[in-house]
């Protein structure tokens, strides 16, 4: 491990060479939008919102998965990046069935927040109107697949932090869905411990606690980084 210096958005910053662009940016108060990333969980690199420009690379690189190196010059904001980030958000809205006004997470939704921050004021791609279901079989929680963006945070927190691995992704491509056990109704799952971590880390209203109505679902995902850090100290 060694310390490196680099430039992010023309600012001189430094960090360890085992840190990522995203981590160093956040330490320095530089905001890069993310959806699938959550501190404490493994890196997915799936939502592509955190793509940044790195001098000398013809490709855009995911800030969450790219280690910093000495002399690196990173741009986290540009017209081009905003264009792609907006399209990603538009694609997510068009892919599911998102009706913010009646959603439990309205006002506390990371997809909504990202859309506002990026100035997405209309959806430029056709809505796909998929036929998706709601599973309300669990005593405490529910999942509305219409609002799922397949970030797989629930899958990772359940496996990596709770250790239950109740969730995974079934099928593939545009048909992919998060599933519990053998696509068993959640309430009948043999492995679910009902800990609720998946609900707390879900960035949208897809996973929710029962009994909440529109706009009432507030989530706390910071526990993940604390749990992970504490476990690191005990081992």
């Amino acid at each position: 491990m060694s310390v490196v210096t680099l430039k992010i958005d023309d600012r001189d910053v430094s960090g360890r060479d085992d840190e990522t662009i995203l981590e160093i940016a956040r330490e320095n108060g530089i905001v890069i939008p993310t959806l699938c990333y959550l501190e404490g969980l493994s890196i997915a690199g799936a939502c592509r919102l955190c793509l940044v420009e790195v001098k000398g690379s013809s490709k855009l690189l995911p800030a969450c998965a790219t280690r910093v190196s000495e002399g690196m010059e990173v741009s986290t904001q540009s017209e081009r990046l905003t264009h792609y980030r907006r399209m990603i958000i538009e694609m997510l809205f068009a892919e599911g069935n998102h009706i913010c006004s009646v959603c439990v997470s309205n006002g506390h939704c990371q997809l909504q927040d990202a859309a506002v921050a990026l100035g997405v004021d209309h959806i430029g791609v056709p809505y796909l109107y998929p036929n998706r279901t709601v599973d309300a079989s669990h005593e405490l929680f529910g999942i509305d697949h219409n609002r799922c963006i397949l970030c797989a945070r629930c899958v990772r927190v359940c496996d990596e932090v709770e250790g239950a691995h109740t969730w995974d992704v079934g099928a593939r491509g545009i048909e992919a869905r998060v599933i519990t056990d053998f696509r068993t109704p959640w309430g009948d799952s043999d492995t679910c411990t009902s800990c609720g971590k998946c609900v707390q880390v879900c960035p949208t209203g897809a996973l929710f606690a029962k009994g909440k109505s529109a706009g009432e679902m507030m989530k706390q995902s910071e526990f993940v980084q604390y749990l992970v850090a504490m476990r690191g100290r005990q081992s």
Partner: peptide
Amino acid sequence: DDEAMRFVARGLQLPPSRVYGAATF
């Protein structure tokens, strides 16, 4: 089928959802 997946999951000590996820991928 589900019965076979359950047997394989037990045999390899894998989470059911991982077996289902792979079988449907």
